[in-house]
């Protein structure tokens, strides 16, 4: 089942002389439960693509459908609500609110929706992220890896249709990075969580079901690494 589709996405920054084409006519789709990694050199436009997919940035042209909804045609507030319910975003620098503790940060999208926290779900997620001992700590009292785990827990809490991670390991050492990736993979495997992940690390990229390479704002490669639910290699393009 198709969960994400983008059509002819273009993004242009600046005007006239300073005009930069960050994305050029990008189209692809992602199936439910798929784990897609996006790789590419710095400045190739992969972060821009992820932000447009996540609804935090607007494309100059093109459409993004998530679960059949064209997100960029939504009004700003509707889009914000859609984002907190359907999209989980993980950033390189965690984006945790410094004044809220671990539990509150995890439940934030849910609380913004005006709903009460589901303690069972919270406990489950906190446990699966190994944060039981840290629940009442503030972000400043946590290590980088722990902060990133909180940010993953926040993204997962609302059972989003799609999880978007922008270099989640970029700021972490190798071991901690591997830990984070395995947590993400775990949720992809067990919860059938659709996951799109940007990385520089080839090892991480190769753990995905499918790998997209972006260069200069264009998809240069779209490689299926293993079949959904199976384990075999398959070349797609």
């Amino acid at each position: 089942m198709e969960i994400l589709r983008c059509e002819n996405l273009s993004k242009v920054y600046g005007e006239g002389d300073t005009c930069t084409n960050a994305l050029k006519n990008i189209s692809f789709s992602v199936e439910k439960g798929e784990f897609v990694s996006i790789v590419g050199p710095s400045g190739s436009g992969k972060s821009t693509l992820l932000h447009i997919l996540g609804g935090v940035d607007k494309p100059t042209k093109g459409k993004v459908y998530i679960n059949g909804t064209e997100i960029h045609s939504l009004k700003e507030d509707k889009l914000a609500i859609f984002r907190r319910r359907q999209i989980g975003l993980i950033y390189q620098f965690y984006n945790l609110l410094p004044m809220l503790n671990v539990d509150e940060n995890i439940g934030l999208p849910h609380l913004l929706d005006g709903r009460k926290l589901d303690m069972d779900r919270l406990n489950m997620i906190v446990r699966s992220m190994g944060l039981e001992e840290r629940r009442s700590h503030l972000p400043s009292q946590l290590s980088g890896g722990q902060q990133q785990r909180v940010s993953i827990a926040r993204a997962l809490y609302n059972r989003p249709a799609i999880l978007l991670a922008d270099e989640p390991t970029g700021n972490l050492d190798r071991n901690t990075g591997a830990e984070i990736v395995s947590l993400l993979k775990e949720s992809n495997r067990t919860q059938k969580q659709t996951l799109i992940l940007i990385t520089h690390d080839e090892n991480i990229a190769l753990q995905a079901d499918r790998m997209l390479c972006i260069e200069d704002g264009e998809i240069t490669r779209d490689e299926r690494i293993r079949v959904l639910g199976g384990g075999e290699f398959e070349k797609n393009s």
Binding site: I81, L108, R154
Partner: peptide, 15 residues
């Protein structure tokens, strides 16, 4: 800064 963070996890303009 903190409102932008809230915004990135889905706070609306009204909020």
């Amino acid at each position: 800064r903190y409102l932008g963070m809230l915004c990135s996890v889905g706070a609306t303009g009204k909020q």
